[in-house]
Nucleic acid binder design. Structure first.
Lengths: 110, 110
DNA sequence: TAAGTATATCGTAATATTGCGATAAAACAA
DNA sequence: TTGTTTTATCGCAATATTACGATATACTTA
């Protein structure tokens, strides 16, 4: 197999999982952190800052784009990326709804 | 390749990625939701509730255990699971620190 | 002891992910 | 036009993940 059975889960469960998966690689975390830090939309120097090959960075960037988390703007030969603040807010809420739940332990076991 | 180059990333980036990966499957989200809802540590009926085979559930449960998110208690032939509230809090903070950042868009592009 | 129940582990097939060299595409510069 | 720069895509090898049947393990009950 090797293929997730998405159809047996709720939309919420699938969405949270898909977003988490994108966060599930340190290079993508690093790209987001760098875009947040250097507000003014840095682009190709991600390769230099992160230390992976250019095609690899491009692939990670594409996944972030597919999720709507970042958007790019062509400027000559370069592409300038920045974070989509609206989508960021949506995802923040998605995780907040999940993580802010009360997880009081039962006294029956554990 | 197919192997993540963890050594070039910070501990924070790696930790957030590892935790995100565990959240990156709807079955594991469903397991956590069910454990939160039925506070009193349900165990084997996860198989019934979720609808994946028993070995598959056991595998997902193990990943949650490895991350420290849930803990199990043997009760006869059964194992009673519940969420580790302390670890849950740590992970909540991990995501909070990341997602609560200010992501104001630059005006230079995008 | 023998049979039953619940969970974990093994082994494996199908598929997905990661990383990168090679190359294409697109815009600019001479 | 030709060469340069920057980014995207293709194709592939190495590895990881997902799912589950078969089986092992551990405890309970008859």
């Amino acid at each position: 197999m090797g293929v997730t059975k998405s159809e047996i889960f709720t939309d919420y469960q699938n969405e949270l999982a898909v977003v988490s998966r994108v966060f599930g690689h340190p290079a993508r975390i690093a790209i987001l952190q760098h875009l947040i830090k250097t507000q003014n939309c840095v682009c190709g120097d991600l390769v230099e800052v992160i230390g992976l090959a250019q095609p690899t960075i491009s692939q990670h960037v594409r996944e972030l784009k597919n999720l709507g988390l970042i958007k790019g703007n062509i400027e000559g030969t370069r592409v300038c990326y920045c974070i989509d603040a609206v989508r960021w807010g949506e995802i923040k809420k998605l995780f907040g709804d999940f993580l802010d739940q009360q997880v009081s332990a039962s006294e029956e076991c554990c």
